[in-house]
């Protein structure tokens, strides 16, 4: 079977927190370019940590992670910022700047293309301002350009966050529980948007989810984490109904 060259690769990655808690344990797997990967697992299984090690929002203790064949662990300063620029991130809590307009929030996704002083004076090029409108059009929110972010509903805020990410021209999007605080209807809108970006732009998307049903609906491939270990990894065609139950078994001695 022929595999596309991986865009992200984990090689024996371990993460131990300073208090001794094991975050990730000997994780090794590849993510091919353009894949829609869903990571499932209990709260505290290490899903968020796994995601954040890719753009170095979290450091790893040992092992190696490569993005486009380059090890990310040595990046510092500008190189690290350039790595992060090509990796968009979506959060459970949306993380918009509530008091600022939707436009400013979306443009803030572009700041890494400008020197610091230009971002401070808001000196974005006309092309980028048009790009912001275009990004909002792609999430169907162009009419909210000048609305304050905190006046939007949760689903709309998450779509603004996606538009912000699009401003980065990302090759990868990491979404950490993007729909955990949304109702079923807005959940579908947000997940559909992510799927569309994956298919139309070929962006590699990695999503952490609680819901197995959602995972099965959207994923190309599902991996399962339990207590920091990779316990499941199958393409969607091979995922069987009862398969994922084992991921959700409580760890030994901690029966709920």
């Amino acid at each position: 079977m022929e595999q596309a060259t991986p865009i992200i690769s984990f090689k024996g990655v371990n993460k131990i927190y300073s208090n001794g808690t094991v975050g990730l344990k000997d994780i090794s797997f590849d993510i091919p370019r353009g894949q829609f990967l869903v990571v499932v697992g209990l709260s505290g299984a290490g899903k968020s940590t796994l995601l954040r090690t890719i753009n170095r929002m979290h450091e790893i203790t040992s092992g190696e992670i490569t993005v486009e064949n380059e090890s990310v662990s040595d990046y510092k300063g500008k190189a690290l910022r350039l790595l992060r620029r090509k990796i968009g991130m979506i959060f459970q809590g949306f993380n918009l700047i509530n008091r600022s307009s939707v436009e400013k929030n979306v443009l803030s996704g572009r700041v890494s293309y400008y020197p610091t002083w230009k971002t401070i004076f808001g000196l974005f090029s006309k092309a980028d301002k048009e790009k912001a409108v275009h990004s909002l059009e792609r999430v169907n929110l162009a009419e909210k350009l000048y609305t304050r972010a905190d006046e939007l509903s949760g689903g709309q805020q998450q779509r603004v966050a996606i538009a912000r990410t699009l401003m980065q021209d990302p090759k990868i999007i990491l979404a950490d529980e993007p729909v955990a605080s949304l109702d079923p209807l807005t959940t579908k809108t947000v997940m559909d948007t992510l799927k569309r970006l994956n298919q139309e732009d070929g962006i590699t998307v990695i999503v952490n989810l609680h819901s197995v049903a959602l995972a099965r609906e959207y994923a190309d491939r599902i991996v399962g984490l339990r207590a920091g270990q990779l316990v499941y990894d199958q393409p969607i065609a091979n995922v069987a109904e009862g398969d994922l139950d084992q991921i959700y078994l409580a760890p030994e001695g901690e029966k709920a």
Partner: peptide, 9 residues
């Protein structure tokens, strides 16, 4: 966190 993940200074 969001701005940091974008690659802002």
């Amino acid at each position: 966190e969001a701005l940091e993940s974008v690659g802002a200074t």
